[in-house]
Design a protein around this nucleic acid. Structure first.
Lengths: 250, 250
DNA sequence: CGTTCCCTTGACACCGATCAACTCTGGTGG
DNA sequence: CCACCAGAGTTGATCGGTGTCAAGGGAACG
């Protein structure tokens, strides 16, 4: 299977993104991988700027992102929107949220997305048939939590330029992890408004932080394509420590 | 069993805090509750300002807070500290983090704490013997994640006064949930420095935000005791919506 | 070829950081 | 009993980062 993302250059890249992602945390045998493929049969397309699942809804299945980017968001009473997470291929939107009942935030598509609807029973069947996979899912939720902690730090302790740089470093690793980075370049299909909503700053100031990073020759960012010109210096600028992502390489 | 916290007024309050907490999410039968009690046998005392588990350590057991307050924190290269979570009785410090290997943040005691060391095998044995408990643990980790999202919003979109008010509303509900609130009053054993570290603001400004809330007759806060004078107005001021905590009442 | 969305730039106001000094409290020891 | 001290809280003055407002530019698209 070859994804339409335009990055499918070799077999590894063309793999199922969920498989790619989980292999970063655990060794999977071919049975495990086959089981993961099973999860991705019921695939739907979502148009950009449409909700994959809205705030307050009760999901009937788990949404698994196969292609495209999404954003977790929360709309506030005063009309502001905070983005609390970006979703890329291989990410579950709402793993086990059926346990909680209602969603306490929404998830919307930033691009046209391909999303697999995974029934709860299928998920429980698969995790109970493979302890490895059960652990791999656990690990991925723990990493999601670690990412959230790093976002709290981002909004709390870093200035504008550091915050943008840090987010780019994080997305660079996560995208690499699912094989979507080529020559230090990858798609970041967000507007500067979205970036600001994620980092808790205004669009104007986000723009100036980006210009700052460009002026220092650390990145290029145009037409939703991000190129990292000097990874080491970018990470220094962001005070980025990749350990919270718990990837086996790095 | 009667906790030494000084709040043990009736039998319900005197219950194991873990039992109290999980009953907010799920119906537990007496077997389940007995199993939870089993988790709390190996209890240790931690002195204030000591690490319960340090950044980078590999935990050999799960730490369960039985009494006292703790803080998740991350020290940054420049000497700043960001607190990314408060731990109160009934909270697991590092549930399943053994799956990830190293801790990516530290947890320190804010007061003298009583902490149960729960071996991994015991935890897995108990969750596999009761589907209800397995689900209850899942739910509590999902709520932890929801709390983190609200902290991102706190640091991103709210001004100083709102942020403090929101944190107090959250702690009020969480403390109520484990029976540690009496007459709208409960212990919040943090310094204004700690508060600032949690909210991403300076101690001086935290102080001014507190004075603001006091001037509006919304709270009293002295000697680590917080009294909520007008819950409705405090929640309005904080734009607090309790649904993210997914408690069955509220 | 005009509309729309997104990016960019400048001016200005303000929130919150920083620095510094002072108070208050509780604890310790003479 | 008092002197001293350390930690926490409080206050005022000043500075800088960021938000806000407003206007203009550029690219994609029908």
């Amino acid at each position: 299977m070859r994804l339409a993302s335009g990055f499918a250059g070799d077999d590894v890249v063309a793999e199922n993104p969920l498989v790619r992602k989980l292999r970063a945390y655990s060794d999977l045998d071919s049975d495990d991988m086959a089981r993961l493929e099973e999860l991705c049969v019921n695939v739907h397309c979502i148009e950009p700027r449409c909700d994959i699942i809205g705030d307050g809804q009760r999901p009937e299945h788990n949404n698994l992102m196969l292609e495209g980017w999404g954003a977790r968001y929360k709309d506030l009473p005063d009309g502001e929107r905070q983005i609390v997470g970006f979703l890329i291929p291989g990410d579950f939107c709402d793993l086990h949220v059926t346990l909680l009942g209602k969603m306490d935030h929404g998830i919307c598509a930033l691009t046209r997305c391909r999303v697999a609807y995974v029934p709860d029973q299928l998920l429980t069947r698969i995790t109970s048939s493979s302890a490895t996979l059960a652990r791999a899912f656990w690990r991925s939720t723990l990493v999601d939590e670690a990412i959230l902690r790093s976002w709290v730090i981002n909004n709390g302790q870093r200035d504008a330029v550091e915050a943008v740089a840090h987010l780019f470093c994080e997305m660079h690793l996560r995208m690499t992890n699912v094989g979507l980075v080529r020559d230090h370049q990858f798609t970041v299909p967000v507007t500067q408004q979205d970036l600001g909503d994620a980092l808790g700053m205004s669009m104007v100031h986000t723009n100036r932080a980006l210009q700052n990073l460009r002026a220092e020759s650390l990145i290029q960012f145009a037409k939703k394509e991000l190129t990292i010109l000097d990874l080491d210096r970018l990470r220094q600028r962001a005070r980025f420590d990749p350990s919270y992502l718990h990837l086996r390489r790095e």
